[in-house]
Amino acid sequence: MEKTIIVSNVTKKHKLYDNTSDKIKDILFRKGYGEDFYALRNVSFEVNRGEVIGFVGVNGAGKSTLSNIIAGILPETSGSVTVKGDVSLIAIAAGLKENLTGRENIELKCLMLGFNKKEIQQLEPEIIEFAELGKFIDQPVKSYSSGMKSRLGFAISVSIDPDIIIIDEALSVGDKAFAEKCFNKMKSFKEKGKTIVFVSHSTVQMKKFADKILWLEFGRVKEYGTKEEILPLYEEFIKEYKKLSKSEKEKYREDVLRQLETG
């Protein structure tokens, strides 16, 4: 089996600064300033071609950070990410220019992704057709509803035919009919043997769609395996976790982090 995504020992460290001068000092001097915050710690996993992998975890687990790192938008602090093929990240209404019309946005986005004029002309009708924007395609994007924006963003991202697709919560917006359409598109991608990374809170979608589940907790991998193994555990955990009060949640977080530090 060919591996398309290899993530090994990836750590992402953010800095929290007390004031702005610490930020400059931190950039200029070797000696670090500010407080370290780990969004990801030693995350390692591999994905085979044609697999659909779902990222699950509670808020702040590092799902979005990880998907951004795989997409190459955020740099990792340490460790390495190897990705074979073109990656396309589908996030809600990412990078649309409010002043430009839908059509101009399509052209601009495709240009930035490295397509030439001729290729864009070929792609354009397909994107417009998929986005179902009707007359609005020639209106500025600022007049769009949020559903329309996400439809346009989604349509662009899927039409450029990437090898690896990362969907960050993008299927949860828009109406049912469009979500269904996106789902079918995803299925056809899966059949074509493309790798799909899928970030969602919804375990229902995961059950329907994913092959493997990566469960993140406070920036580290808690479990990784097939959905049959992991999803029941995760659902069990979520049920328990929801019952906890705010202070208990905080305590749980501290316990886990302490365990991590002591190894």
Binding site: A71, G72, V87, L89, A94, G95, K97, K109, M112, L113
Partner: peptide, 9 residues
């Protein structure tokens, strides 16, 4: 920088 959807731009 935020609207660049790819780092290899």
């Amino acid at each position: 920088v935020k609207m660049l959807s790819k780092m290899n731009f």
